[in-house]
C-alpha cells in the first residue's frame, strides 16, 4: 500500500472511530454511572455490572442471541452453497438477473415482509389453507407462526442473500480446472465439493458468516413480531432498559456484555474458518 493510499483510508478510519468507538466509550462510562430521579449521575458504581453478573435472564438472552446467530449462519450456509455454485455456472447476463432476483426480497421493508409472513404462515394463511385443501392436515399447523421455528425460518430467509453473495464471489475465483482434475481422478461430486470447492471458498464463507451472524444475532423486530411468546431478545431488553426502565447504566452494561460476547463468538468463527487448509492457501495467495 502506498503512502497516498493510506491517506485515502484515513477519513474512513476517523468515521469508524467517531461512529463506533466513541459511543462505545460513552457506554462504558454510563455503565458505571448511577441514576437518581431520572438523572444520570457520574459515579464509579459497580451496581449495573453486579446486577448483570447475577442475572440469569440477561445471560440467557445473550446466549439466545449467540444461538440464534450461529443457527442462522449454519442454515444460510447450507442453503447458500448450492445457490452460489449454481450462480457460477450461469452466463454473464444470467448472473446479473439472478443477483437482482436474489436481492428482490430485501427491497421491501422489514415490516412489510413480517406482515407478509403472517399472511403466509398464519392459521388461516396460505400454507395452512393449501395443506388443508389437499387434505394433508385437518387442523392448521399452529407452530408455523409465532414459534422458534418461525424466527429461524424468517431470519434464514432474510439473511440468505448475504451468504449467497459472499460465497458466490469466492466460488467465482475457484479455478475450474482443479474441480475437473479432481473428477478425472475419480472424486465423486460430493468429494470434489468437500475437498476442493469448500476449502477454496472458505474466505467467502467466513465473510458471509460474519455478516449473517452480526445481522441475525442482533435482530429484534422479527423475533418480537413473529416469534410469539418465544420472541424475547437481548436487544429488546436493552431497549426496554434504556426506555421504560430509564436504567441506562444497566442497559449500557448489558449492551457491552452482548457486544463482547458476539465479538468473541464471531472472532472464533472467523478464526476456525480461516484456519482451514484451503482458506490459508487463498488468503496466503492474496
Amino acid at each position: 500500500m502506498t503512502f497516498r493510499q493510506r491517506h485515502l483510508a484515513l477519513p474512513v478510519a476517523a468515521a469508524i472511530v467517531a461512529g463506533c468507538l466513541a459511543p462505545l466509550a460513552v457506554l462504558v462510562a454510563f455503565s458505571f454511572y448511577e441514576v437518581e430521579d431520572f438523572e444520570l449521575v457520574p459515579a464509579f458504581s459497580f451496581r449495573a455490572w453486579g446486577e448483570l453478573a447475577f442475572s440469569s435472564t440477561d445471560w440467557f438472552l445473550i446466549g439466545k442471541a449467540v444461538l440464534s446467530g450461529v443457527a442462522t449462519t449454519v442454515f444460510t450456509a447450507i442453503l447458500g452453497y448450492p445457490v452460489a455454485l449454481a450462480l457460477t455456472r450461469l452466463a454473464a447476463s444470467g448472473k446479473g438477473l439472478a443477483v437482482i432476483v436474489l436481492l428482490t426480497p430485501l427491497y421491501t421493508g422489514e415490516i412489510v415482509r413480517i406482515y407478509a409472513w403472517r399472511i403466509v404462515l398464519g392459521g388461516e394463511g396460505l400454507v395452512n389453507t393449501l395443506l388443508q385443501g389437499v387434505g394433508l392436515i385437518d387442523e392448521p399447523l399452529k407452530f408455523l407462526l409465532f414459534s422458534p421455528f418461525t424466527i429461524a425460518l424468517v431470519l434464514t430467509y432474510n439473511n440468505l442473500p448475504f451468504m449467497v453473495l459472499a460465497i458466490w464471489v469466492s466460488a467465482e475465483m475457484v479455478d475450474r480446472r482443479l474441480i475437473e482434475a479432481a473428477r478425472d481422478l475419480g472424486a465423486r461430486p460430493i468429494d470434489a465439493f468437500f475437498r476442493v470447492i469448500f476449502p477454496l471458498t472458505t474466505p467467502g464463507l467466513a465473510a458471509g458468516s460474519l455478516t449473517v451472524f452480526a445481522l441475525s444475532a442482533g435482530e429484534m423486530l422479527t423475533p418480537s413480531l413473529l416469534g410469539g411468546t418465544s420472541g424475547s431478545t437481548a436487544m429488546a431488553l436493552v431497549d426496554n432498559l434504556f426506555g421504560t426502565a430509564f436504567d441506562w447504566p444497566l442497559a449500557s452494561a448489558l449492551a457491552l456484555a452482548l457486544l463482547a460476547t458476539l465479538f468473541l463468538v464471531a472472532s472464533a468463527m472467523a478464526g476456525l474458518l480461516l484456519r482451514l487448509k484451503g482458506a490459508r492457501a487463498v488468503v496466503g495467495r492474496v
Binding site: 403472517r118 398464519g122 392459521g123 407462526l145 409465532f146 413480531l225
Partner: peptide, 23 residues
C-alpha cells in the same frame, strides 16, 4: 399463561391484524 397465548402484541395495529387474521 405463556403456553396459552398466541403472542404478546406490540402495537395496536399489530393486535388489530391478529384479530383480522383469526389468530
Amino acid at each position: 399463561q405463556k403456553p396459552l397465548l398466541r403472542t404478546y402484541w406490540q402495537t395496536i395495529g399489530d393486535l388489530t391484524n391478529l384479530f383480522a387474521t383469526g389468530e
